[in-house]
Design a binder for these strands. Sequence first.
DNA 1: TCCGGTTACAGTCAGCATGACCACAACCCG
DNA 2: CGGGTTGTGGTCATGCTGACTGTAACCGGA
Lengths: 233, 233
Amino acid sequence: MSAPTAPRVASCAVAVDVALLTVRNDRLQLLLVQPDAAALRGTWALPGRRVRDDEGLDDTAHRSLAELAGITAPEAHLEQLRTYGELTRDPRGRVVSVAYLALTPTPGDPPDTDRAQLFDVARLGTAEGPTLAYDHDRIVPDAIERARSKLEYSALATAFVEEPFTLGELRSIYEAVWGVALDPANFRRKVVSTPGFVEEAEGLAPPGPGGGRPAKRYRRGHARRLHPAMLRP
Amino acid sequence: MSAPTAPRVASCAVAVDVALLTVRNDRLQLLLVQPDAAALRGTWALPGRRVRDDEGLDDTAHRSLAELAGITAPEAHLEQLRTYGELTRDPRGRVVSVAYLALTPTPGDPPDTDRAQLFDVARLGTAEGPTLAYDHDRIVPDAIERARSKLEYSALATAFVEEPFTLGELRSIYEAVWGVALDPANFRRKVVSTPGFVEEAEGLAPPGPGGGRPAKRYRRGHARRLHPAMLRP
DNA sequence: TCCGGTTACAGTCAGCATGACCACAACCCG
DNA sequence: CGGGTTGTGGTCATGCTGACTGTAACCGGA
């Protein structure tokens, strides 16, 4: 944004990488795809595409999810995470990558193919977890920490569940993302006393397989920031 | 980060824009420069440069400050803010800009020239304030809000003052950035009880022109996050 | 039909952090 | 010396939180 007399030369390529998180079976999971490059066989990467000349960054993020994982979730939460511009982050040359964080209740089409898969976040970085390509082992922790952090001071947890939801379901989101157990009674008191977090809906939800009292249904409230915040234990 | 078979073509230009904030005379101020373009006469812009092929993003941020405002402050806090990629944000063509937030106690060389100047943040957006070029009227509010927000949960306020400092100086930073008055006694209790925020230094600071009891000196602590947070009133 | 198990919901209580004050200390200036 | 100013230490009431207890409402099996 300056040097207007500079010639219009190509300085470096721009790409978008998307870290899509979801909660399945009470576990936080991350979407990864297999790179096409033969040299990267056996590794996994975040779905990402080059930015086209006539395309906004958000559009590239949506296109990455659609083309590489078949996910078209227009209601999914999508926000920019950070831009990674290390000189050597891509062996093919200088590529600046704008990373995105995406949250969704259930990826539209279950992407459990051999090209796109959901991985337990708890297993990332361990021997059983996938090996990440490029510098994605730096992007992924940033994305997870952003999600964990934003659960504290924003109503983002509601982006992981479908409406209507119960407070038990919402609590299981917090427990899966944070990896801790929360007291049900205190969680309820906190959520319902935070203005605009959730709104009561009609009817009751049937109990789960183990029985239990039916729970009230709720919908997302209008608040985007939580006051006061829901702090991690 | 994908489509490895795609040719190495120029998709779009990449630039860095820096929003440098400082506190002078108890007022939060922002550094702006005059664009070279004749069509933008009378407007002001964030200092920014194109990213070179062999240059990291952080390096471009430092170079922008040095070349356009003569500021070489290696100890200044510098962090990435967000990347702006709107198709029409630059009339000269598609330019993706990685915005940075910089905080410094005193800009190395006082940049009060006709090309670079500090503006009161309170006046931005008003009739007396400068007219901003490009989409910088979108970047600047994001930068200010980031700074205000990070004062809450990080020890970033210490980046605005030089060591050693008094708690009165640190409090004036909070008051200038947030635009509110804080109770001196409660502020002190909060700061000294937050582990790692500040550490006591040697000696006392002389009182200001109006007199007053000498204040203890402090240095930055080792903590980067504040637990619990210092919330805005 | 009763009974244990499970989940949802409601309430109590102590501890901690906070905001609103008050009091004193230590300097400057006139 | 005495008022003004700033720094520092304290009290007190309030509100949020974690830990905990108790009741409601459902399931499944004996």
